[in-house]
Amino acid sequence: MEYTGERFIPDSDGLEIEAEHIHRYKAISSCIKNMNVLDAGCGTGYGSFLMSQFAQNVIGIDISSESVEWCNNHYTAQNNLKFIQGSLDALPFDDSEFDCIIIFEVIEHVDTDIQTLFLKEAKRVLKPSGVLIMSTPNKSIYTDKSGYHNPYHISEFYLDDFKSYLKREFDIVKLFNQSLYLVSSIRDEEMNERRVRLIQNPGIEVEGKYMIAICSNEISALTPFDLSSIYKYDSTLSTNIASLYSGNDNNAYSEDSKQNIALSSEKDNTFSVNFKLSGNIDCNKFRFDPVENCFCICNIDEIQTDGEVESILPMNALKYYKKGFLFMNIDPQFEIKGSFNNATYLTIKGYFKIMTPVELSDFVNDMYKQMIDATNS
Rank of each mutant, 00 (worst) to 15 (best):
S65K: 12
I59P: 08
N57D: 12
D89H: 09
Q85S: 03
E69P: 00
C100R: 03
S67Q: 14
S48R: 10
Y46T: 13
G41F: 02
F54W: 12
S48I: 04
S64T: 06
L81H: 05
C42T: 13
W70Q: 08
S67H: 15
Q53Y: 09
D89L: 11
D95I: 10
S96M: 04
D99V: 07
L38D: 09
N80E: 06
N34Q: 13
C42A: 11
S87E: 15
D39R: 03
H74P: 11
F98V: 03
G60S: 10
N34F: 06
C100N: 00
C100Y: 12
G86Y: 09
Y75D: 02
D89N: 14
A90W: 04
N34T: 06
G86D: 05
E66N: 15
F54H: 12
H74Q: 04
N79W: 02
D99C: 08
S52Q: 01
D95R: 10
D39L: 03
F83Y: 14
S65D: 12
I59M: 00
I32Q: 03
D39S: 06
M51R: 04
A90Q: 13
T76D: 11
Y75I: 00
M35K: 14
V37Q: 10
Y46E: 11
L38V: 06
V68C: 12
I32S: 06
A77P: 07
S67A: 15
K33N: 13
G45D: 05
A90L: 09
K33G: 00
K82W: 10
I32C: 06
I84Q: 10
G60Q: 05
S87M: 11
K82M: 08
D99Y: 03
L91W: 00
S48D: 08
T76G: 13
F54P: 04
T76N: 10
N79S: 06
F49C: 11
W70Y: 15
E97N: 10
T44D: 04
I32D: 04
L38T: 12
Q85D: 01
S52T: 07
D95W: 02
V68R: 06
C42L: 09
F83Q: 02
E97P: 00
A77L: 12
D95L: 03
N36A: 07
A55V: 02
S64E: 11
